[in-house]
Write a protein that binds this DNA or RNA. Structure first.
Lengths: 147, 147
DNA sequence: CGGGATCCTCCGGGATACTG
DNA sequence: CAGTATCCCGGAGGATCCCG
C-alpha cells in the first residue's frame, strides 16, 4: 500500500484481461477495490463520512488500527482525493480529516455491496458449513448420529 | 486465502468496530470484500457469470492467472456458494464451473462500484498527480517552465 | 497531538514439477 | 484435462521508538 509503489496509474494494470468489453467492468472494479482494499480504508471512510475527524479520534473509533496503518491509510485516501486533510497550526497540533463528495458517493455505492452481504450472509455461511462438512469429515465419522 | 485458516466464520472478525449501528454496514462490506478480494475472484466471477466454463477455458480467459491460483480461487468461490462445480466422469475429465444466482446478484452490485470508478477515474488520477506533484518535487524544480 | 523511521512477521500469490 | 505439492518472494500490516 505504501512501501512498494504499485504504479497502477502508469503502466499495464495487474490484469491484462481488459480486452473484451465485458472485462472492462472487472478492471474498473479492480481499480476501486485496489483503492478501498486494506483492512482499514473502509472503516476510515465510514467515520470521516459522518463528519470531520481528528487523528486521535480516528485512532479510537477505528478500533484495532495501529498508528502506523492509520497514517498510511489516511495518506493514501488523501492522495486519491477521497479525504481532505486540514491542519490547524495551534499549540497542540490539530488535524482534521474529512471525506470528499467523491468519497461519499463511493460509500453510497458500497451500500449496494452491504445489501448483498446482508441478504446472503446466511446463505454463504450455510454453503461454507456444507462444503466444510462434506470435505473434512475424516475422523468425525459418527454414523450413529447420522443413521 | 488457503494455507492460513483465517477463520472468519467462527470468531471475532478482524474489525471490532461493528458496535455502532453505522459501522455494521462497514463490517458487511468487509465481509464481501474478503470474499471477492484477491486478484482473480472477480475475473472468474465475470467469466462464469457469462455461462458455464471449464477449467482450461478459465485458465485462458482469465489471462495471467496461474493454475494454482485458479484452483484455489475456484475452491473458495465454490465454498462460499458463489460457484457450482460439475464433474463429468468422462475419459478426459471434464469439469464445469457455473456462477450461482447469488453470484450474479453480487456481480450486479459490483456494477455500482464500476459506475463509481468510471465516473471518478480521471478525478482520482488528477488528485494523485496533484498530491505527488506537491510532495515529491525536490529535484525537479524547474521554475523556468513554471514562471 | 500527530505523525515519521525502522524492524519483523505473515500470507497472498508466482513458478515449477508431479499425478490420476 | 484438471488438478496437487513444494519452494520462494514481495508487500501489507503490527510493534516499537523517536520527533516537532
Amino acid at each position: 500500500m505504501s512501501q512498494g509503489n504499485t504504479d497502477v496509474t502508469t503502466e499495464v494494470s495487474p490484469v491484462r484481461q481488459c480486452e473484451t468489453p465485458a472485462a472492462q467492468a472487472a478492471c474498473s472494479v479492480l481499480e476501486v477495490l485496489g483503492r478501498v482494499s486494506g483492512k482499514w480504508s473502509i472503516g476510515i471512510l465510514l467515520v470521516t463520512t459522518q463528519g470531520p475527524a481528528r487523528f486521535t479520534e480516528l485512532e479510537r473509533q477505528v478500533k484495532g488500527i495501529s498508528r502506523r496503518m492509520l497514517t498510511l491509510t489516511l495518506r493514501n485516501l488523501e492522495r486519491d482525493g477521497l479525504l481532505t486533510r486540514t491542519v490547524y497550526p495551534t499549540v497542540p497540533p490539530k488535524v482534521e480529516y474529512t471525506a470528499t463528495p467523491m468519497a461519499r458517493e463511493l460509500y453510497d455505492s458500497l451500500l449496494a455491496l452491504t445489501g448483498w452481504a446482508e441478504r446472503h450472509l446466511h446463505e454463504i455461511d450455510r454453503a461454507r458449513a456444507d462444503y466444510d462438512g462434506a470435505a473434512a469429515p475424516e475422523a468425525v465419522r459418527t454414523p450413529a448420529l447420522a443413521g
